[in-house]
């Protein structure tokens, strides 16, 4: 057990957004994964963020090699 305060759902969303900008610290990662593991709403939200980030990459054509042809 640690003596840190447990993080809230709101804190979790900040960490999810920050993780797009920088590498989270080990402590932040532990907080984030620890909270998500025990919170059903954050599990659902986390799944949605994953899909959102993937869709944004597709929308701006980041996951496809330019000039490549998917049918090849």
């Amino acid at each position: 057990m640690t003596n840190r305060e447990p993080i809230t759902c709101q804190d979790t969303t900040w960490l999810v957004s920050d993780s797009c900008e920088r590498e989270l610290t080990a402590e932040e990662k532990a907080d984030l994964h620890g909270h998500i593991a025990t919170c059903e709403l954050c599990q659902g939200a986390s799944k949605q963020f994953d899909v959102l980030f993937q869709q944004i990459r597709l929308f701006f054509s980041k996951d496809i090699q330019p000039g490549g042809d998917a049918s090849e």
Binding site: S61, P66, G67, D69, A70, S71
Partner: peptide, 15 residues
């Protein structure tokens, strides 16, 4: 004429 993969036309144009 340098572009051959039509499936990725959108990707190419956005880039």
């Amino acid at each position: 004429d340098k572009f051959e993969g039509r499936a990725a036309l959108r990707t190419w144009l956005i880039s």
